[in-house]
Design a protein around this nucleic acid. Structure first.
Lengths: 120, 120
DNA sequence: GTTATTCGTTACCTTTAGGTAAGCGACTAT
DNA sequence: ATAGTCGCTTACCTAAAGGTAACGAATAAC
């Protein structure tokens, strides 16, 4: 063990768990895509999400929505229209994700500059 | 399309790309573990990382380190010791990840409170 | 009756992440 | 000569994520 310097980022066990939780919850190909669409449009039906999340299949969309609902990030509302429509919207708790998105975007932009040398 | 309200989180295409880059780069079972260990200890050899990243196999560790090096988040230094040792350390660019970690930890903690009702 | 719409589900397949176990090359110590 | 250390690599396997294609229940329009 060749420890040299001790930097100020020592995470306690609970914080490491929190980190794991957050990563696990937000990882995957579609999570942020769905969340961003809901941020932008406020409320979207299943069909809408299928169209705005370009390339997603109903099976995968359904699974992702269930997962997000279980984690209380979105609400699912069945409207009595004919045929039945279902509306999805963000919960107040979902706004807590915004700092994560901002941090990821900022890092991603800097990283692109560093790696690919292109500002966009 | 049942758009209702327009909230202030409209990401341009470049930012969406940056978000995808960042997620892709930092996802996976071991990335943050390795980075945190390097944050905490400054410099670690392959063997050290194998021990601090409990459960990782040399194959996976090797792959992760290569990926991190390609993305200029860590440096790889071969020491002329016998037998050969190799030291890994964070680059200055890796410090840009700190806000991401902080945001993820904060969200994770709040999320645990919300979902499981346990503060730890 | 036939077709269409909406919100899914089901069965099946491919791809990827990650794990298991073993070995290799260079060197050292006994 | 044999065994050990270090930093990997290789071949193989498993499990999970995700894609493809088709179908189903409910209702309505033609």
């Amino acid at each position: 063990m060749t420890a040299t310097c001790e930097q100020p980022l020592v995470l306690h066990k609970e914080k490491v768990l929190a980190l794991k939780d957050a990563i696990e919850l937000l990882s995957g190909k579609w999570k942020f895509c769905i969340l961003l669409n809901l941020y932008n449009y406020g409320t979207l039906r299943f069909k809408d999400l299928q169209e705005t999340s370009v390339g997603i299949t109903p099976k995968v969309l359904s699974k992702e929505l269930q997962e997000l609902e279980e984690n209380q990030l979105i609400t699912r509302t069945v409207n009595n229209t004919k045929p039945v429509t279902v509306s999805y919207a963000l919960t107040p708790h979902a706004t807590e994700i915004q700092p994560v998105i901002n941090a990821l975007v900022e890092f991603g932009l800097k990283h692109r500059m560093k790696i690919k040398g292109t500002p966009s």
